[in-house]
């Protein structure tokens, strides 16, 4: 490098003045152009834009059909969308989701911790729980809980291995429809979320456990303050999957005639034969719930990304605004470079 500059200087000493604005000590080959001064023309993604337009066309066509095909029965949809029966069904759906989801995830966390504990008994009990509740179809579980009174007419405390009760309950009054649904959904949910949480905990570096132990942190601090917040990053995407699955999965409890959203919808369309509009009512409600959860998921994940990323990702609104801004700025780029500026590049040209 130095050699070329030296040669160059001795060969053309008169050009020194033109390069006087450059740092004299800097080793610069004056034959190479100053690219930094040139304007960048970004690649035109023609194929990308064509396919984008095609996809957009298909989507618009579908939306148009939604609006114009009167078999969708939008007027009927509108009358039932906020119908009191539907709202009541929604309340029950949300109640089932919140209660079963909460019980499911708390119990799931305990199961995951038991599964990772050093006690072989806790370990195998947890394993068996997960094994059993993942093996038996949810539908069967719900029917069994609902008909528990047939298997065990009375539940209570008494002398072990006998039928002598000190204190007991009629099973049918204890396990109502709602209780049967919550039992089925939350135990099933616990089994699945236990594995998700265990996976998250396993993803935390072993060194974190050692550091926490070396600082003498009590067990609950290690779990709640050190391990779970770090595991959360791995747990959250799957956990939201499960919650979204659960909110729609509650429709399965229609088999025990519990009046949640989907059951109510069925009852109404069996009466008035307007199947599609009423199914749309429940579908649109499920879409609304899922949308809310998906947005919540984004922000919760963003919260737990702190420390894990140097820069937190932009929110979708920020990202969309940024994208539009770049595309807008590129609009006034000329795709073809005019010939004039090329002469300015080389040092010899001037």
């Amino acid at each position: 490098m130095t050699d070329t500059v030296k040669e160059h200087r001795s060969a053309a000493p008169t050009e020194d003045s033109s390069a006087s604005r450059r740092d004299v000590n800097q080793v610069v080959n004056r034959n190479s152009p100053d690219f930094a001064a040139l304007k960048v023309v970004h690649t035109r993604h023609v194929v990308r834009w064509i396919f984008g337009a095609l996809v957009l066309f298909v989507v618009l066509q579908f939306l148009w059909s939604l609006a114009t095909n009167d078999k969708y029965g939008w007027p009927i949809f509108a009358t039932y969308f906020f119908a009191p029966a539907i709202i009541k069904g929604i309340q029950l759906t949300l109640a089932l989701t919140v209660v079963s989801g909460t019980i499911g995830f708390v119990l799931g966390t305990l199961l995951a911790l038991a599964r990772l504990s050093k006690s072989p008994i806790l370990n195998s009990v947890s394993w068996s729980f997960i094994w059993f509740f993942r093996s038996v179809p949810l539908l069967v579980q719900l029917l069994v809980w609902y008909n528990l009174g047939y298997l065990y007419p009375r539940l209570g405390l008494g002398v072990p291995f006998t039928d002598n009760y000190f204190w007991s309950f009629d099973t049918v009054t204890l396990v109502s429809q709602f209780a049967a649904a919550v039992l089925g959904l939350s135990l099933n949910q616990a089994a699945y979320s236990a594995e998700i949480i265990r996976g998250g905990i396993l993803s935390v570096d072993q060194g974190q456990l050692e550091a926490a132990a070396a600082l003498g942190l009590p067990r609950h601090v290690r779990v709640l303050r050190i391990i779970l917040p770090q595991a959360a990053r791995a747990i959250l995407p799957n956990a939201f999957n499960e919650i979204i699955g659960l909110i729609k999965g509650t429709s399965i409890v229609s088999v025990i005639a519990l009046g949640e959203l989907f059951y109510v919808t069925q009852v109404i369309y069996n009466r008035n034969q307007q199947v599609i509009p009423l199914l749309l009512v429940s579908v649109v409600w499920y879409i609304i719930f899922t949308t809310v959860l998906s947005v919540a998921q984004f922000y919760v994940e963003r919260h737990f990304a702190r420390g894990a990323l140097r820069v937190v990702p932009p929110t979708p609104i920020q990202a969309a605004r940024g994208w539009v801004k770049t595309q807008w700025a590129r609009l006034d780029e000329k795709p073809e470079t005019p010939e004039a500026p090329t002469t300015r590049i080389g040092g010899n040209g001037s």
Binding site: G207, E210, A211, L215, Q230, G307, A308
Partner: peptide
């Protein structure tokens, strides 16, 4: 253990704090 402090090769700082 709190009588004995440890500094690890890989620091093992808690990344979320």
């Amino acid at each position: 253990r709190t009588n004995v402090g440890v500094v690890f090769q890989n620091f093992n700082l808690f990344p979320h704090l």
